[in-house]
Simulated scan of single mutants.
Amino acid sequence: MPDTEEIDGDVYVSPRHLAGSTYTGDPALKPLLALGFDLRHDGLGNVYVTAADHRVRLGYLPEGDDDGLWRINAYRDRFGPPAWGVSFNDSAPTEFVTAFTTALAQAYTAGPDTYLAEPDLKDPVLGAFDAVVPLIKNGWQFQQPRWGVIALQPPDGMATCEYTTNRLDPEKELTTLEARWHLWGGPKSGYARWYATATTNTPITLVKAITQSVSDPTPVPRWRDSMFPRLREAAHLTSVTPPPPLVPTPLDVQNAATRRLPALGTRIVPRWSTASRPVLPGPRR
């Protein structure tokens, strides 16, 4: 457990799909910046991170045209349309974005065959199953929302992961919520609701990084007062500050003293060190 002073929050929140954003993008940018990605920003406060070969681009857009705070695209042709795109809105827990960018940094290091790997074209549904395994392991259950959609929800029903099996418009996948993968959570309406999308050709390993983080049972730290009230009401909060130590009872003190006494018949020999004073001889009998 980290030191209390190093934890950015005063409560732990679980499940994490009810934690809300941390309102800082630094943790999610760090994995790509560590690889030497170029970082630029405009006068509005938007941040743009680009790989040296321009095959991967990330936008952190607090002043964008919509609530899509994070937009990450990868390109086969640096002058062509994106091969795939992933987005997170401004209410998405930052841990989800960080999990994705960490996996993306690893995939980019491995090369184009990894970060541009296309799903199994023969059986895309079977290939996509690997990304929902973390959800199933953490208690999410299959739902039947509508034809052409595979959905899973956690026991509290306050998050959803949808995988669409129908044919989709590539342009709409990049610009709307009509994407191959659509995850969301939080109250049914309001600013506290978060979402994430991933288009058809997003490598399954990268989608899996998101689903693993979303369903991870490990609580995340937050500042209680910065959380939306509806999230505080729905989530389980635990104080970061550990409980005060228990005051020892008289019996505890007695037992501790007993353990420190030497065994009956044991001879106590004084320890000698360079700092010890010489033992003076006692009087003769």
Rank of each mutant, 00 (worst) to 15 (best):
P248C: 02
S273M: 09
F142M: 14
D77Y: 10
L174P: 06
L168W: 07
W272G: 03
P81M: 06
V149K: 05
G139H: 01
T200W: 02
V13E: 09
Y23N: 10
G68H: 11
M158D: 12
Q153L: 09
W147G: 13
L104K: 09
L231E: 00
L174S: 10
L58G: 14
E6R: 10
P62K: 07
R271G: 04
T114W: 01
T211V: 04
P62S: 07
P93L: 11
T266P: 01
G127K: 03
P229F: 02
P250K: 04
R76D: 15
S91L: 04
R40F: 01
C161A: 15
F37R: 03
R267P: 01
Y23V: 06
D123F: 10
R180T: 15
A103D: 09
G127Y: 01
V207T: 10
V247L: 07
V47H: 12
L29I: 02
R193T: 13
P82M: 13
T199I: 05
P134Q: 05
G265C: 11
T94P: 03
L264P: 11
P219A: 06
R259N: 13
K188F: 10
R76W: 07
K188R: 15
R232W: 00
P93A: 09
L121I: 05
T238N: 08
G64C: 10
S226G: 00
A83W: 10
D53R: 09
P262D: 12
